[in-house]
Amino acid sequence: MSGGIDYGNLMHRAMRGLIHDVLTDVMNRGLPGEHHFFITFDTQHPDVELADWLSDRYPGEMTVVLQHRFDDLEVTEEGFAVTLSFGEAPERLYIPYDAIKTFVDPSVEFGLRFETHEEEDDDEDDPTPPDGGPDGPGDREPQQDAEVVRLDAFRKN
């Protein structure tokens, strides 16, 4: 075997499998208890399907919430489709797992974040030390554990 073990891709595949399993369970049984999900995804991913007005409004990424008002959740090996209400207008979305940037269940303080190779390359050029300063909205902790997202940004006041 040349090139070594690609732990990053193996971990991402396992994390996407976890999301698949969780959503499949929700599709079959519904959301248990207080569980709900904030799912942020890349709206420019080539396999994402959403209304033109939504991709115009969210040209880079979008966060959807699966909690009280969602219908027709359909889970496949590659992604999931769901109908969500935007105001009073229902819209069908298809989100491949590869487009997901974060998956958070604030009810149990669980979160996953997926880094792309571009973001990792950009981090190498960043002169800020890994433990220095906030890294964006919500003052999340430094990216020492890239797969875990702090939930402060999702908490209700």
Rank of each mutant, 00 (worst) to 15 (best):
D121W: 02
V75Y: 00
T76G: 03
G111N: 03
A99D: 11
V22S: 03
N9C: 10
E78W: 07
G3C: 13
D131T: 05
I100L: 03
T102C: 11
P106L: 08
L93V: 12
G33D: 04
L112N: 03
Y97A: 08
A146Y: 12
P127H: 12
Y7I: 03
P127L: 03
P142F: 01
H45I: 13
H20Q: 14
D25A: 06
A51G: 14
S2I: 15
L73K: 08
D126Q: 01
H20M: 07
A51M: 08
T43G: 01
G60W: 12
A99E: 09
H45N: 05
A99S: 09
E88C: 15
A153S: 13
P130C: 02
A99I: 04
D152M: 06
E91I: 03
R69F: 12
D125L: 05
S107G: 03
P106M: 04
P142R: 02
T40H: 09
Y97T: 10
D21T: 08
V64P: 02
F114S: 01
Q44S: 12
L112P: 10
T128N: 13
G138K: 04
V26H: 01
D139Q: 06
F70G: 05
E78I: 05
Y94P: 02
D131W: 13
D123T: 09
E118N: 09
L10Y: 11
D131G: 04
D126R: 00
L112E: 05
P90Y: 00
L84F: 00
E124T: 03
V22Y: 05
I100Q: 00
F37M: 10
S55L: 12
P106F: 04
D6P: 04
R69Q: 15
E109N: 15
S107A: 01
P46W: 12
H117S: 15
A51I: 11
D71Y: 05
F110L: 09
F37P: 01
K101V: 08
G30A: 02
R29W: 06
I19Q: 10
G87E: 09
I95Y: 03
E109M: 07
D123F: 12
H20W: 08
D52I: 07
S85E: 09
R92S: 06
M62A: 05
L66M: 03
L93D: 08
A81Q: 01
T102H: 11
T40S: 13
I95F: 02
H68I: 13
R57Y: 14
I95E: 07
R57C: 15
T76M: 04
E88N: 13
V26W: 06
E88S: 11
A51R: 11
P142Q: 04
E119K: 07
S55W: 14
D131Q: 12
R69N: 15
P134F: 09
T83Q: 05
D98K: 14
D105S: 10
R92W: 15
I39H: 04
D72K: 06
E109K: 07
G87L: 10
L54Q: 02
H117R: 14
D123M: 14
G136L: 03
E77P: 08
N28F: 08
Q67R: 14
